[in-house]
Simulated scan of single mutants.
Amino acid sequence: MLDIVIEARKAALNEAVAVKRILPFRLHRMVGPFIFMDHAGPLAPVTAPPSSLDVLPHPHIGLSTVSYLFGGQVTHRDSLGVEQIIRPGEVNWMTAGKGIAHSERFEDPSVLAGGLEMIQTWVALPEKDEESDPTFNNYTVDQLPVFTDTGVWMRLIAGDAYGLRNDVKTHSPLFYLHVALHPGARFGLPHGHTERALYIVKGSIEVSGVTYSAGQMLVFTKGVDPLIIAKKHTTLMLLGGEPLGERYIWWNFVSSRKERIEQAKEDWKQGRIELPPNDDQEFIPLPEDRFKSSSSQPPRPEPLS
């Protein structure tokens, strides 16, 4: 019934923001087209200066970044000239395609008083879309359908599941949902998708007599129909879809071709990926440049499949 249980590992966006990293995992690199998942927070209250949380301009290729907040507020700026505040329950969907740079800033202390909690995923692009022009879209709460049943609340972030659809533009078949369960609620996975998983944001669930808790991702065997029982108030992220085939990942770059990642590295070093025009005074250098003066080694491209 379960292919694997993935335990979130400790990672960091910067010195001030620790995250739980779920994907990629060495024994199970992807779930459908999803190749990356971080859970930031909850940080409550945020006592550091908001600017210490900032993620400086950095590049991406070959993927879509998907940002979803439970609490707080983030300002997105990118090299298309977009400046967009994302609030809880909204979706920022940025498709990097052939290359984009963006920053994530925390500029309003008042909206962080109640804390910060955020999920970011990366969705790999099909080969035909890897070199597409970059795009950005923000989807507000009223654009994302909600379904409720006894003890169950869910919001469709993207794709299709349980008969729900929305206008979030995707490039391959997938599903992505935010689900809240009351204690004792019984719940099943959506049908019609080859690969399916859930991540426990908070609370705990029981599957086949075994209890699983916050910080765990359960990846399910194709075709099974598990019964999920909430042991307490529980928040889940459900995700999956159709696999895309082998992918390489290095830093913020994803591609079906290793040589394309090498090109992206050189493009960033040479300034060929433009910085956001309204946030171009600083940026994150290529990791291998940061490692030149130390004995540590930068990350290497890894095949994901």
Rank of each mutant, 00 (worst) to 15 (best):
L53S: 04
K258C: 04
A161F: 08
N278A: 10
M30F: 05
S296G: 09
E302I: 15
G184F: 04
M154G: 08
K10F: 07
Q216G: 09
G159L: 05
V123Q: 12
I6D: 09
P109S: 08
G223C: 10
G215F: 02
P299N: 12
Y176F: 15
H39Q: 03
L286N: 03
R155I: 04
L2E: 10
H191G: 10
G97M: 01
F70E: 07
L23C: 06
E130I: 11
A40K: 01
L239P: 10
R272G: 04
D160V: 04
A185M: 10
G114T: 03
I229Y: 04
K222Q: 14
A230L: 13
V91T: 11
K169E: 12
M94W: 00
M1K: 12
R300F: 08
L80N: 02
G241S: 09
R247E: 04
H193C: 09
L125V: 05
D3A: 02
G89Y: 09
W153D: 05
I249K: 07
S64F: 03
D133E: 13
H182Q: 14
T234A: 05
A158I: 13
M94N: 00
Y162D: 05
T75Y: 01
P298D: 07
E262Y: 12
V17Q: 03
D142I: 06
L304P: 00
Y199C: 02
M1C: 02
D267R: 13
H28I: 00
S51R: 14
S256Q: 13
S172W: 05
V17A: 02
V210I: 13
L144M: 13
G271E: 12
T234L: 12
Y68D: 02
D3P: 00
T47A: 11
P276C: 14
P173N: 08
I6L: 15
P126D: 06
Y199V: 04
M37F: 14
I100V: 10
P298Q: 08
V74Y: 03
G184P: 09
I100T: 09
I61Q: 10
G245C: 07
K202V: 02
W153M: 09
G192D: 08
H28G: 01
R290Y: 00
A230E: 03
S295A: 10
Q281K: 11
I119K: 07
H76P: 01
S295T: 10
